[in-house]
Design a protein around this nucleic acid. Structure first.
Lengths: 218, 218
DNA sequence: ATAAGTTTTTAGTCTTATCTAAAAATAAAA
DNA sequence: TTTTATTTTTAGATAAGACTAAAAACTTAT
């Protein structure tokens, strides 16, 4: 069983390791976590025993495969909760982080995967950071659902989620096709419908449609 | 600042005090929390210092006004999360409790009040237990939103949530008024619209309307 | 009313996660 | 290459929450 505190250390090490790929210093961790170097040393020993980090005295620390997996999953949870708070609970950009910091520690696979579904499998959090999927993969080719785009964003249509003939017929009729540039002009909060622009035509599509169109972000 | 553990004790005492209004015994608490009597004694001293319980050695314990307020709020959080897990995240009846047990400790007023709104201010949790409102009142007179009724249920219109003139005008036009009996004939899953019956007239109203009409259940 | 049984509390220990202060190791400067 | 400065680790302490074992207080039964 992993504790809240251990999870927080893993997350901090993960973030620092981008800048210090040869080993994250004790002080760097202490500073970012508002704690003392001696506390960090204690925790590194514990995490090392649990095989979540590779740690040699005075040499800095890096995550093991196992540790990284846990860190990435934690980031997934954090970012999904942020999207949830913003989109479903009317939180503002600056309010999300603090609460997500608590929610991310709730331990339930199902909880987080269902949350992912509820939010239409978002690929980015409110700050534009990518959200890893359940296997820990960050989709670098940013194929996202049209429904997850914000106002003013544009993407190229690259695929559909629903492949029923009814849906494809509808797309034909509306002149929506692979390769077309689609811009989100306005999102209707009331029913989730979206005003989109394709080649100088503007029209509304329902949330249902937007949930089934994949775009590649520009 | 109140800890997870303290909150759990408050909850346990609250539940026991229904059966033992003159004082809850140390052993009863220990048993229901799967802990030892000595641990309970320790905690009762701490809670007593914080003025959350009235505790005299060997005499049993009861919540103070302040302690009860916290306990009721905790129950509110627990039950709202249960509704959320069941209705929005496809959890089953038996899965909700364990995860709600963790979620209930997340500290954010806004989080829980927005969750309440997202769920249309439910008055009962999945087990039929009442959900206290944000002021700690269990509505014994079950004033519920029309949107929360199930098919075949009937209620008397007792109020509105939205008081805009546009909304009230609409109600007039549709012959919806305080005192009228309203029966839910059918609920449309697709868009949340509801087929209702008032004095032999049947017609559809949108989810938006149903979310703003209070009924007293029959 | 006193002995036996039960419940509750105290006293002392353990673990987790912190901290301070001092010692050891590494890095930088003269 | 020494000396100085910085970083990191150790040693020892503290607080929260839990435990065991023993003492103290209440309850029952004789």
């Amino acid at each position: 069983m992993i504790t809240f505190s251990e999870e927080n250390y893993l997350k901090a090490i993960y973030h620092h390791s981008k800048d210090y790929p040869n080993g994250v210093s004790t002080n760097a961790i202490a500073k970012s976590m508002c704690t003392k170097a001696s506390s960090v040393t204690d925790m590194l020993k514990k995490l090392s025993e649990k095989k979540l980090v590779n740690y040699k005295k005075y040499q800095g620390v890096l995550l093991t495969k196992q540790g990284e997996k846990k860190a990435v999953n934690l980031i997934r949870r954090h970012r999904l909760w942020e999207v949830f708070l913003l989109e479903k609970l009317n939180f503002t950009w600056d309010e999300v982080h603090e609460v997500a910091e608590e929610l991310e520690h709730i331990k339930s696979e199902k909880l987080i995967n269902e949350l992912d579904r509820l939010l239409d499998f978002p690929k980015k959090d409110p700050h534009g950071d990518p959200i890893p999927d359940k296997d820990g993969n960050f989709t670098k080719d940013i194929k996202v659902l049209l429904s997850t785009l914000n106002e003013k964003e544009t993407g190229i249509c690259v695929g559909v989620n629903d492949t029923s003939t009814d849906f494809l017929k509808y797309l034909n009729k509306q002149n929506i096709a692979i390769g077309k540039h689609i811009t989100v002009v306005e999102k209707e909060v009331f029913d989730g419908s979206i005003l989109i622009k394709i080649e100088d035509n503007q029209f509304y599509i329902s949330h249902q449609i937007a949930k089934n169109l994949f775009l590649q972000l520009q």
